[in-house]
Design a protein around this nucleic acid. Structure first.
Lengths: 131, 131
DNA sequence: CTGAATCCGAATCGATACTG
DNA sequence: CAGTATCGATTCGGATTCAG
C-alpha cells in the first residue's frame, strides 16, 4: 500500500505542486469518472457500465485516488448486499465543470483531428511497389 | 509501426469518437507540451528542458502523436546541425486555451487537494499496536 | 542538435479466484 | 453488490548507442 515513492521528481514535485495535480487528473479513467459522476450519483456497477472498457481493478484504483484527493464521496449503505454510492464533492463538481470544457472541445474537433490523422498517415505511406 | 489496433474497443471507439480523442489528450506529456507550446514556439531541447522529467523517447513519441493529430507543426530548418522548431497549429492553440483552464483549476485548488489527501491518510492509519 | 533503435527493468493492467 | 489479492502478460519508459 502507498507506493507513491516515484523515485525521483519528488524534489520537482514539491517545487511545482501544480504538476502533481495535473499528473493526477490528466488521466484517462479519472476524467471519465469525473464526467460520469458530473451527471449523477452512481453505484459501482453503474459506473463501470458507463465507462465501458475499464476493468474492475482500474475503476477501484481510480476511485480510491479520487476519494483521497477529495474529489468524490463514497457512501456505504449497510444493506444486504451492500450498496455503495459514488458522488462528486463540491471540489469534484468544480473540476467536472472544467473537464467538461475539454470534453466539449474534443467533441467539437473530432472531425479536424481524424482528418489530420488521415493526412498524416497518407504522407507516411511512402509509395510501396514500383516507386 | 502503426500499432493502433487496440484489440477490442474498436467498435466502442468508432461509436463514441470523443472517447478516443479524450484518451489521447488526457495524457500527462501531451498536456504539458500543449501548455509549453501555448506560450511560445520551442525547439526540441528547449521543450525537453521545460518539461523536466520527460525522456527524449517519450517527448519524441508524444510529439509524433500530436503532429499526427494536427495539434503541432514541426518545422525543420536545414542548418548544420539541423534545427527543429515545434509550434502549435490553430487547432493546437484552441486546445491550449482549453487545457489552460484545467491548469488554472489545478493551481487554484492545490491546497484543498493536498489537505484532503492528508486527512485521508490520517483516516487510513488505523491505530497499530494495542487496538 | 534532433532523433531513431535496441535493450531491459518497472509499472500497468486484465483475468481469475475469493470474501463479506 | 462491491470489492481484495494474486499472477501473468503487456506496455511503459529510461539508459544507452548510433546516425544524419
Amino acid at each position: 500500500m502507498a507506493d507513491s515513492s516515484s523515485s525521483r521528481w519528488n524534489m520537482l514535485k514539491s517545487a511545482c505542486p501544480t504538476r502533481e495535480i495535473l499528473d493526477r487528473i490528466a488521466d484517462k479513467w479519472t476524467m471519465l469518472v469525473i464526467l460520469s459522476l458530473g451527471e449523477e450519483t452512481l453505484r459501482f456497477t453503474q459506473l463501470r457500465a458507463r465507462i465501458e472498457g475499464v476493468s474492475q481493478k482500474m475503476l477501484t484504483q481510480t476511485l480510491r485516488g479520487m476519494e483521497s484527493d477529495g474529489l468524490i464521496l463514497r457512501t456505504v449503505y449497510p444493506t444486504v448486499p451492500v450498496t455503495v454510492e459514488y458522488s462528486l464533492t463540491p471540489l469534484g463538481h468544480s473540476l467536472a465543470r472544467t473537464v467538461d470544457v475539454v470534453r466539449e472541445w474534443a467533441y467539437g474537433h473530432i472531425g479536424e483531428i481524424l482528418l489530420a490523422r488521415q493526412e498524416y498517415n497518407d504522407r507516411e505511406t511512402p509509395r510501396v511497389g514500383i516507386g
